[in-house]
Amino acid sequence: MILITLLKREFFQLLRSGHGIIPVFLSLAGANVLLVRFLMKAEGTAETLPALWGLATAFGLPFLAAVAASRGFTQDRETGMMRLMFSTPVRARWWVLGKVCAAWCLCLLYLFGMGISCYALVRWLLPVDAQLFATPMGFWLATGILILQAFLWCSIGTFVSLFSRSSASTFLFSLVSCLFAPPVVILMMAFWHSNMGIQWPWFPLQSMVYDCACGFVDVRMAIGCVTVSVVLIYASGIVFNALRLCATER
């Protein structure tokens, strides 16, 4: 019940703030532009629409999750709410889960919006014989993996917000860790081990969505997403309690 109370509160607060609807529209616009670009580029090839849709959506998702989750604890710290939260009889994990789930719900709204825009694209813009659900299994697999990834991005953003003192720095750090950390790591590995960079994709999580839409499910990556999310939520709870110990809410 505590989680539902917190989730309702956080989600509606997020929707009303500048971290809510506007970033959803911006992400939708960006992802749709990307989708159209992919479609134009893929014309005449065997690439399926769900795969391109999944790829475009996966690039917009970290941006939105970073904005939504950056509000997290940073806002409470700015308004002086942290001290009141510390003395409330609610366990740290519920505070963290409430914030992660609120940002995640916003990401689900974005996924729903992408689904609708894709449907509109097929219905009115693409040739009559083109079908979104040509490979329905691929579409739903991509959606499933996107939902898991959204949870991971939101967990990262919320974790970062515990350390940061402003929403802007939280957003930047979350975005960098969500989107640009894998290519940087791969670049560094390619620098040290010359043949490793060629084996791995630059954006592994986005590529995973593409592969899922094509019917190749990487179960290890999916389990990895869930495990890292759970670990981050647990770690966020510990950090929240540690803040109470050292009074850095000031």
Binding site: R83, L84, F86, S87, R244, L245, A247
Partner: peptide
């Protein structure tokens, strides 16, 4: 007061 209110440990 923060200590008494258990906001601080």
């Amino acid at each position: 007061l923060g200590l008494i209110a258990a906001a601080l440990v």
